[in-house]
């Protein structure tokens, strides 16, 4: 029997809430080194990869690998029923039945909640994703996640053009990042400049540009990533016209969540 135990209920609640809007299923892999999660959205345009090393957990035990596809909406529902300080135990039988049991134990209330999830196909993942090289990107933008969330909120409140999927155009030029969305009767533009690190040393916006670049993304992907970005103080956006964009937030020194998004082409 395999039994990783962990106490990161709040963290997983937030991850599942962020992902379950956009991704239906995810592939989970628990190993001695930690957890790796991958999911692709139904239109196969965005891939999310979450890595959380064993050291990130208060308590983590996993003697043998445990790998499964799970429905994210069901998991989000289960985690909503759990308390934030619950201890989670994950159990799967050695002989590979096709379900996994998540047990939430509340030491304070003396209550145990148990959920069985059926394995699902997990939509063509896992994939081999090479570590990305920053030098391959035309522009790299780093900014506080709170700022990124504000920008996405502004764009999505305006960028609903009605009949088709709203998009955002992100352009980097002259050490500026411009985000643009078109609504029904007008447009919305936010321009961010590189900020002086002396004024706000803790929350700089940094723009490294090799060449000007301008890319179109579906707003729904940006919104999902902005929800996930609450897990970290900063986001990094790597942009290239040849490669999928990488939207990353690092989780302390203990892992990361990355969205790889294929840009739309005119």
């Amino acid at each position: 029997m395999l039994e990783p135990r962990l106490v990161q209920t709040t963290f997983f609640k937030n991850v599942l809430e962020a992902l379950s809007d956009l991704f239906i299923e995810a592939h989970f892999e628990f190993s001695r080194t930690g957890l790796e999660l991958q999911a692709i959205d139904t239109s196969r345009v965005a891939l999310v990869a979450l890595v959380l090393r064993a050291e990130a957990f208060n308590h983590y035990l996993c003697d043998r690998g445990l790998s499964m596809g799970l429905n994210l909406a069901d998991m989000a529902k289960a985690f909503r029923c759990a308390n934030n300080d619950d201890i989670i135990t994950i159990k799967a039988e050695e002989d590979w039945t096709d379900t996994v049991t998540f047990t939430f134990e509340s030491p304070e209330d003396g209550e145990i909640l148990e959920f069985d999830f059926d394995f699902v196909g997990s939509n063509g993942v896992p994939l081999e994703i090479p570590e990305y090289q920053e030098s391959e990107y035309q522009a790299i933008v780093r900014m506080p996640s709170a700022k990124f969330m504000r920008i996405c909120k502004k764009l999505s409140s305006f960028g609903d053009s009605g009949d088709r999927d709203p998009v955002v155009i992100i352009s980097v030029y002259k050490e500026r990042v411009r985000s643009f969305a078109r609504g029904k009767t007008g447009t919305s533009t936010t321009v961010c400049l590189q900020t002086q690190t002396v004024d706000k040393p803790k929350e700089p916006t940094l723009i490294e540009m090799k060449e000007e670049v301008s890319l179109i993304f579906d707003l729904k992907y940006m919104n999902s990533f902005s929800k996930a970005s609450t897990l970290s103080d900063q986001v990094t956006i790597n942009l290239s016209s040849e490669l999928p964009a990488v939207f990353e937030c690092k989780i302390a020194e203990l892992g990361y969540i990355r969205y790889y998004i294929s840009p739309r082409k005119e």
Binding site: R44, V45, A46, L47, L127, S262
Partner: peptide
């Protein structure tokens, strides 16, 4: 309209 490559074009199966 916009064309769009699928993300799986960039990565290989593990």
């Amino acid at each position: 309209g916009h064309k769009q490559s699928t993300i799986t074009n960039y990565f290989i199966r593990a």
